[in-house]
Design a protein around this nucleic acid. Structure first.
Lengths: 241, 241
DNA sequence: ACCTGAACACCGTTCAAGT
DNA sequence: ACCTGAACACCGTTCAAGT
């Protein structure tokens, strides 16, 4: 059932040694597991088996399943931390927001099955807005914009608008990407528009039937870039008020 | 534990008669249950108890838990169907999109705990985009726009942009609304910025600390209207190409 | 120090049996 | 026709016990 898992099923490396358990190892194994098998398949017992260990062993390193999910989200979002030691300085808030937007998009594309977790889990503080849901990311966001001409208020408004933008676009893009690759243990979709059912629905849904092929086309790259440009232009206009 | 349920805990009406079980009754009871107790609390056994019946009885009317969730989503989204018999004719695609946007927003506001379900469940067809995830809604959408000057391509582009817009804004708004009312059986948030922890993080997150109060302010009404206006203007511009 | 066996309280789901 | 008891295969989680 599990296709092409990246670790040996018994959680041993190529030399046959068992990898030493740790929070980091468990979380990264969980990410791979969700990538391959989908979120509902992630159970403590199943992940334990993947690592060649009983489920109870995991409780030494993570405080239960909820904490594991939190760790997964945190490990993904931390890729968006600004790191001055390795990054060249950004010139302009537009460059920063472009970098940030494409960073989140890369996460959504590489881990489409994990992204719904990033999108819908309750953040640590009520004003944190997925997918920009870590304190460090928000601090960077506000700092970059305010140091480059935004007022406090406009930086906060930008944070709200930008998080909504990223969430809507990338959650739908991840869902589309997931639907192609997906380990669909879901039920066979009842009102599916496969060729068989399509004919019977031409009368009821003429536009949908006629445009079915074009509705399925993937223009996510150009659509994302265009919407991102529009967002940046809009922020620029509020700056010049 | 369960606060202010709207049906008698034994699923009987005021006269003491047991309500006759049906798919519709079960689904609407499930919606109320999720509104009050949150999505994770919805179990077949728990819902059965709420209706004064054993869990197994529900299987006569719904094909398992997944089908129940599907029924919940479908019952909410069907509120967005155009009904020519009761509605006055809409003049202009802007009026239609305003009506649609506010309809989805009302659902998100009235059922914030259900909205993540509408947002993240795999739709019946891969090209359906939550929250506009029913064939009828998409047919209405395309029909309204194409009959009012949109080309096939621009109507499809508008469907994509509009669904992304609604999903991003309303999922975040529902999450914020849910966090206030929520039955939070969640763990105590570890990096919460409550007064106690706030002081220690001023050094690490100066902007966040300074703006904490303003980050928590709710401007969702005006922000939604402004972003909706912007979206409609953008569509209007592509129309005039 | 690290892992496990056994146990507990839950799930969803099936099916023969009751009324 | 409609509901239930009993059972099965799973969960997450705890804790005393093993090594």
């Amino acid at each position: 059932m599990a296709p092409a898992i990246r670790t040996d099923p018994d959680g041993v490396d190529v030399a046959g040694r068992r990898l030493p358990l740790s929070r980091e190892l468990i979380i990264s194994a969980a990410v791979l597991f969700v990538d391959d098998n989908g979120l509902p398949a992630l159970t403590m017992r199943g992940l334990g088996k993947e690592l060649g260990v009983e489920a109870m062993s995991l409780y030494r390193y993570v405080n239960g399943r909820e904490d594991l999910l939190e760790g997964i989200v945190e490990s993904m979002v931390s890729e968006l931390h600004l790191d001055p030691t390795t990054m060249e300085p950004l010139n302009g808030w537009q460059v920063y927001l472009q970098w940030l937007a494409h960073g989140v998009r890369r996460i959504a594309q590489e881990h489409p099955a994990v992204f719904p977790l990033i999108a819908t889990r309750h953040p640590a503080a009520p004003w944190l807005r997925p997918p920009l849901r870590s304190l460090k990311v928000v601090e960077d966001f506000l700092s970059e914009l305010i140091s480059r001409g935004f007022t406090d208020e406009s930086a906060i408004a930008a944070y709200r608008a930008f998080s909504s933008f990223l969430l809507g676009h990338l959650l739908l893009e991840a869902a589309a990407r997931g639907a192609k690759t997906d380990v669909i243990a879901d039920m066979p979709s009842p009102e599916d528009l496969s060729p068989a059912n399509l004919e019977s629905s031409i009368a009821t849904f003429p536009h949908v039937s006629r445009l079915g092929a074009r509705l399925s086309e993937d223009h996510s790259d150009s659509e994302f870039e265009a919407a991102l440009e529009n967002m940046l232009d809009r922020l620029d206009r509020t700056l010049a008020h």
